[in-house]
């Protein structure tokens, strides 16, 4: 069995999750400080990729990064390289698709956080940065971790947007999900079952770890 699709899926998901992690936290923190109306509008826009079909995200990305687009053409001209139909084209696709999961989980954790702790830090003379890193982040640890695991798992199985921007080239852009689809088209059920098994195993591990995290979070909340 050629393990390339697993490795490719893992590297796309890992790199994308790093971006999603910081973007999710940063934007959730900034949005929380906005007045109510702005918050509502931004919240809708930021959550959109969660409900939008991933093919729509893929479509927009092709329009933005394709060789016919301004950006794509410029890069092709200067570096003689394409942004799409490469493995790394999957990274922005996965970032966009997984962002709402991180953003919403983190925002939920921030909202559930006891704001008196932040005020206490500030009245004791500590900067907003200190309060953010030393009080808020440790307090929302479980939520951040849950959001990250969720985003990573979603990124690992992403199909719609990735297949549109990466295409399917065995050994170059193939991911687990595009491989399963391709194997089914070829009628190679035996191999398809193996990849389905890999997918199930990964999903199972993710769900168990999220449940464990949530239980710990509840225990922490009860103790506090």
């Amino acid at each position: 069995m050629d393990w390339f699709p697993l490795i490719n899926s893992l590297r796309i998901a890992l790199i994308a999750t790093v971006f999603t992690f910081f973007l999710g936290i940063f934007i959730a923190w900034e949005v929380a400080k906005l007045p109510r109306l702005c918050k509502g509008v931004l919240d809708c826009i930021l959550t959109l990729p969660l409900v939008l079909p991933p093919t729509v995200v893929g479509f927009f990305l092709l329009k933005l990064m394709g060789t016919n687009s301004a950006l794509g053409a410029w890069i092709l001209q200067h570096w003689n390289t394409r942004l799409i139909m490469t493995w790394y084209a999957g990274i922005p696709a996965v970032i966009i698709v997984t962002f709402p999961l991180m953003y919403r989980t983190v925002r939920g954790a921030f909202e559930a956080f006891d704001h008196d702790l932040l005020y206490a830090g500030k009245t004791l003379g500590h900067s907003n940065t200190w309060v953010f890193w030393r009080v808020l982040m440790p307090g929302c640890k479980q939520g951040l971790l849950a959001g990250t695991v969720l985003a990573f798992a979603r990124g690992l199985g992403e199909y719609g947007a990735t297949s549109m921007v990466c295409g399917y080239t065995p050994g170059r852009t193939a991911t687990i999900s595009t491989t399963v689809y391709q194997l089914w088209r070829e009628g190679n059920d035996a191999l398809a079952y193996q990849w389905v098994g890999v997918n199930l195993a990964i999903s199972f591990v993710v769900l168990v770890s999220i449940n464990l995290l949530e239980r710990r979070q509840k225990q922490d909340a009860r103790r506090a």
Binding site: D114, Y119, K122, G125, H126, V135
Partner: peptide, 19 residues
């Protein structure tokens, strides 16, 4: 800002940092 006010705020639930 609260940092410069030198106001000691004693919260209802003490607001001790749990970590």
């Amino acid at each position: 800002p609260p940092q410069q006010r030198r106001v000691g705020y004693f919260f209802q639930n003490y607001a001790l940092f749990p970590n």
